[in-house]
Amino acid sequence: MSQPPSATTDTWMLWEVFIRPGAGLEHKHCGSVHAADAEQALHLAREVYTRRQEGDSIWVVPSAAITASAPVAKGEMFEPAADKIYRHPTFYQLPDAVDHM
């Protein structure tokens, strides 16, 4: 993994940190660190976010590499799912005798 380092600025580039609490669980965002490169970002993330065994795996991702959905687009992005209640198992009324299928 080779990210161009932030050589031209005074500030080290910003990395988002994701921690996996344990095998079988997913990585979860927990904050960010500044670091000159990916290796250092991992190292610093370990010091900042796992001082008490909060996880057993760390991902660091350049903050600039993340594309996020826009808050103003929340409606068009997520509202269409709101009226599709037939996608949930609770939509279907079955006889009591078989309701626990």
């Binding site: 990210q3 161009p4 380092p5 932030s6 050589a7 080290w12 670091a35 000159a36 490169d37």
Partner: peptide, 13 residues
């Protein structure tokens, strides 16, 4: 220290 880390990152890159 900050300068050294940046220089190292640049060289490695």
């Amino acid at each position: 220290v900050r300068d050294a880390a940046t220089a190292h990152a640049n060289k490695a890159h």
